[in-house]
Design a protein around this nucleic acid. Structure first.
Length: 300
DNA sequence: CTCGATCCCTGGACGC
DNA sequence: TGCGTCCAGGGATCGA
């Protein structure tokens, strides 16, 4: 499932492979995940791909203006969200199309940029000018660009559970379920803790954990757990370093306690029940701790 | 404001 | 082998 490190990996691969190429034509398959398919068919042919960058979990293919369009140069881009199973990669035009290939852009060097997405949980949109800026403004800070001050303000300024905040793209853009759980594990914070009730020191630990994990995951070209492949068709390696995500019942790397799984913010959340202390029970924070009195805390 | 529930979609795992 | 069922999850939406 492409999150920030996976999308960054794809963006870098595409930048290397297709930046500068001109789009000659567009062929669409199923379009129910595309905001404006007819505009894509009309606007993309003739434009070159100026650069490919990541924006949160989106790929932003920045485009040149149409050649003869005398209009004032408006920023234009193709936004691509890979959802759960989306893949975007250039392939020789002669190669057969994989199943679930829904968008094909013929490039000026004989290759095709193909969007393949079995579940179509992704999203694609052509946007320009103010509507592009408006769309980008909807999202929160990039976790790798935000300073500690901003991060702290965003986390402590809300009363939602920390897991929900990490997943909320309007708070931070790019974090998904895997890296949320991994960073909470590293910072020893229970996913049900309220953001507003974290101590400053804990927020700082979370900030450092999140940045460190994202950076390391980018170096390893992301996590391939289901079927993530980068722009070159290669899997990532970071799944070998997961400490919490997907490890239900397995021993915690710190204390050997079995990793537990609970649903928080509607998503599976993996955590160590010993290292990541649950919030005091109460209607506001969930009741996982109902029977964990002070009794056995210092059991020795 | 925040919550959970529901829907979208398909492939893979699992049970019989 | 071949069904049926459940689950995964990012994001939108809706009602509580």
């Amino acid at each position: 499932m492409p999150e920030l490190p996976e999308v960054e990996t794809v963006a870098r691969g595409l930048q290397r492979q297709i930046a500068g190429r001109r789009i000659l034509s567009i062929t669409l398959g199923k379009t129910d995940f595309i905001d404006n398919p007819e505009e894509i068919e009309k606007e993309l042919p003739g434009r070159a791909i100026r650069s490919v960058v990541r924006y949160g979990k989106f790929l932003l293919l920045r485009l040149t203006p149409k050649e003869n369009a005398g209009e004032t140069e408006r920023e234009s881009a193709l936004l691509v969200h890979l959802g759960m199973t989306g893949m975007l990669r250039p392939q020789p035009a002669g190669e057969p199309h994989a199943k679930h290939t829904h968008v094909v852009a013929l490039l000026d060097d004989g290759r095709e940029l193909r969007y393949i997405d079995a579940r179509r949980f992704g999203r694609m949109a052509y946007l320009a000018g103010e509507s592009l800026q408006e769309e980008l403004r909807r999202f929160g800070a990039d976790p790798l660009e935000a300073g500690l001050e901003e991060f702290t303000a965003r986390i402590r300024g809300k009363r939602a559970r920390i897991k929900a905040l990490l997943l909320d793209q309007q708070v931070l853009r790019g974090v998904g379920n895997i890296y949320a759980d991994e960073s909470l594990w590293k910072a020893r914070i229970h996913p049900k803790r309220l953001g507003a009730r974290l101590r400053k020191e804990q927020v700082k630990e979370l900030y450092r954990a999140l940045q460190g994990i994202l950076e390391r995951a980018i170096v390893m070209r992301g996590s391939s757990i289901a079927d993530f492949l980068d722009a070159e068709g290669q899997p990532g390696e970071y799944q070998r370093h997961h400490r919490a995500y997907g490890r239900e019942g397995k021993p915690c790397f710190r204390c050997k306690t079995r990793i537990k799984r609970v649903i928080v913010a509607g998503r599976s959340s993996y955590f160590c029940p010993l290292c990541q202390k649950a919030p005091r029970s109460g209607r506001s924070q969930g009741r996982e701790t109902r029977n964990q009195g002070q009794g056995h805390l210092k059991k020795r």
